[in-house]
Simulated scan of single mutants.
Amino acid sequence: MSSTLHNKQANDKPKTLIGVGLRHSHYTEALQNAASHSHEVDFVEVHAENFFAEGGASKAIIQDIAQAYPLSIHGTSLGLGSSSRVPKSILQKFTNLVQLTKPMLVSEHLCFNRARVQGNLVHSGDLLPIPYNQQSLKNIVSHIQEVQDNIQRPLLIENLSAYIHAAQLNASTQDDMSEFEFLLEMCSSAGCGLLLDLNNLIINALNKKTNNPVEVLKQDLLQLPPEIVGEIHLAGYTDNASQTNDFIIDDHGAEVSAQCWDLYEFAIQRFKNTPTLVEWDTQIPEWSVLLGEAKKAKVIADGSERRDP
């Protein structure tokens, strides 16, 4: 093979796309960067519910964002693990947003957020864990497929950080498979993909007092076939365990943790060229600080690509 042909093939190889979660305080700078052709990230992700309004400023803003950047839509309201179906009004708004923006990725969470209490449907206002059993699997697969039928594309489902087990909410509910076994069965049965949140895995391991959590999680990730992972999330957390009964809270309120960077180096080698997003949702920093975190992810991803044979 000539060196010219070899270099062309190397240059044609797909690169890992690096994005950031775009929040309200950064809209102006992000759009100004795009207008000046100084894109410093490959894509941005927004929370779907912030753009459910059918008209007005929010619709104009999301259209501007979608024109300026490749877009990822990340839902928090569908509650696909709830026993009740997704309310038609929420599903329609979610579908309308996907059809309007034509995003590169669409995702939701492995959780429930609605339940009937004394005959009334109540929304928890939080992402609550579901049991890893066959009944729960059948339920969420049905709801994922309903959403996918509406949006006419596959969903990515994000693994959850959880501070309680489902059995603590309902004593009659028990797990009969591990988290990773459940994720595999869910993706296979529903035809969906996985949004692999490394920070959530780390927080769960730390809250369980797991020894050498990153090394344990690296072994866990070997259970996942590379083809099912469609996006990776990176984030940090505020180490406030002493104020929260020894629990670390998944607040996305700090720079990406050292443990998360360590796990990402392993993950991006296994799940090559997977779009990667940095989240920062509380104590939001300057836009330049967020871009700095994205640049760190790019350095790691680029290093992984250079190590490929």
Rank of each mutant, 00 (worst) to 15 (best):
S3T: 15
N7P: 08
N7W: 13
P14L: 11
P14G: 09
S25T: 15
S25A: 15
T28E: 15
A30I: 04
L31V: 04
N33E: 14
N33H: 12
H37Y: 13
H39F: 14
E40Q: 15
V41Y: 02
D42T: 04
F43P: 00
E45I: 03
V46G: 00
E49I: 03
N50L: 10
G55N: 15
K59V: 15
A60Y: 10
A66Q: 07
L71V: 03
G79R: 03
G81P: 00
S82Q: 07
S82V: 08
S83D: 11
V86H: 04
K88F: 13
S89D: 14
S89Q: 14
S89E: 14
I90G: 02
I90R: 08
I90P: 01
L91M: 10
F94N: 01
T101S: 03
P103H: 07
M104H: 09
L110V: 00
A115N: 09
R116I: 12
Q118G: 09
S124K: 08
P129L: 01
N133W: 03
N139M: 12
E146W: 08
N150F: 10
L155N: 05
L156I: 10
I157S: 00
I157V: 05
E158A: 02
E158D: 07
L160F: 06
A162C: 10
Y163M: 02
I164F: 11
A166H: 02
A167I: 12
A167N: 15
L169A: 03
N170V: 09
Q174L: 12
M177D: 06
E179T: 07
E179S: 05
F180K: 10
E181W: 07
E181C: 06
G191F: 07
G191V: 08
L195M: 02
L195E: 01
L198R: 03
N199K: 05
I203F: 08
A205G: 06
N207Y: 07
K208E: 13
K208S: 11
N212D: 11
V214F: 04
V216Y: 15
Q219L: 13
L221T: 03
L222D: 11
L222M: 12
E227P: 00
V229P: 00
V229Y: 01
E231A: 04
E231H: 04
A235M: 01
Y237R: 04
T238N: 12
D239N: 06
D239G: 03
A241R: 15
S242V: 14
D246H: 10
D246Q: 12
F247A: 08
D251F: 03
G253K: 11
E255M: 13
V256N: 05
A258R: 10
Q259E: 12
Q259P: 00
C260G: 07
L263S: 01
L263G: 04
Y264C: 02
Y264S: 05
E265D: 14
F266E: 02
F266Y: 09
I268V: 12
I268S: 06
R270L: 15
F271R: 06
P275G: 02
D281E: 11
I284Q: 14
L290V: 14
L291F: 06
G292L: 03
E293W: 00
A294P: 01
K296D: 11
A297L: 05
D302C: 07
S304G: 05
R307I: 11
P309H: 10
